[in-house]
Design a protein around this nucleic acid. Structure first.
Lengths: 181, 181
DNA sequence: GTCTATATGCCGATAGAC
DNA sequence: GTCTATCGGCATATAGAC
């Protein structure tokens, strides 16, 4: 990390790491500024509000959701869409572990996202595809269980060492068995 | 909820509901007091600090972990212990949805718990039992994925209606398939 | 056991010098 | 683009009356 200098990208990275460790509400602008070696005021040159920083941090995750749903949509069969989405989610969860942790289990982050109608639409389509043909309560529960399990990479890598390929394959295995493929 | 009166039990219940909605760090004593119809100062008659309230809220979950691990420990075979623990966790997650949500995915709550050596010991034993005979990285990952999925009941019941029996049975099914029983 | 009032400090946010 | 200095507000926590 470049000390004493801030940029939108550096701020996002520092914020994401702190969000993953202390939660969004538990992270102050002072903590982000200190981590970057600047003062709080410097952050305001790049972002007008703390909300702006939070949005910038989770935006890539929302964009990723949008792209993978759009790609799945073009596939002909429901089961192909489902398989594609499970793989795409596994990829993203492995390569953006902290981001998926924050996005999926931080109360402030989820509240922000759910206020965005576009995101809600995308998320509903994702749920539908992951359910396969079925849309009953049990299928929704299984989808939710799978999505919640995507935060495991961060939690597990605190105590054991797992390489990305194994991580990805295990998530796919679990996803396909939970969702009955 | 009895308005205008507070007691340790009422405070815990009000706090738990707010913690589940806004996160621990996102919940102020003022919010808890307002929900109970009293002033902040009244809360301090029952608890010395906010930390004390948080501890009181998550204590039952930690006690539940302790009891189910102790019960599993008395069983003769590893696979029996594993099956018992999956069922016990499913029961508790269904009947204490908000508590399991807070305990498993709130950063402030998990930080507090992990500072308790007794809890860490119990949690490690639980991981070991859920792994079955195996203790490799992939098994730890699968256990973590299962535990994280236990927050799904709260999330899913925001959009669909699932009865407790179906909920419990689905969690058990998913747990046994994830953990390869 | 709850209240009013207050202490002290950190929060997000802004103004203006350099 | 970063700094110092400051604002108003709300946070946790306390003192003492009723």
């Amino acid at each position: 990390m470049t000390r004493g200098k801030s940029s939108p990208a550096a701020i996002q990275q520092a914020a994401l790491e702190l969000f993953a460790d202390h939660g969004v509400a538990g992270t102050s602008l002072q903590m982000i500024a200190t981590k970057l070696g600047v003062t709080k005021a410097a952050l305001y040159h790049h972002y007008k509000t703390k909300d702006g920083i939070i949005r910038a941090v989770i935006a890539p995750a929302m964009k990723g959701f949008e792209e993978m749903v759009a790609a799945a949509r073009t596939l002909p069969e429901a089961s192909q869409k489902q398989h594609y989405l499970i793989r795409a989610l596994a990829d993203q969860a492995v390569h953006n572990r902290q981001l998926y942790l924050v996005m999926l289990q931080d109360s402030s982050a989820t509240t922000l996202m759910e206020r965005d109608p576009d995101y809600r639409k995308i998320f509903e389509e994702m749920q539908m595809i992951l359910c396969g043909e079925n849309l009953g309560p049990e299928a929704v529960l299984r989808v939710t269980m799978f999505l919640m399990s995507l935060v495991a990479p961060v939690q597990a890598s605190r105590s054991v060492d797992i390489n990305d390929a194994t991580l990805r394959q295990t998530i796919i295995d679990v996803g396909e068995t939970i969702l009955r493929c």
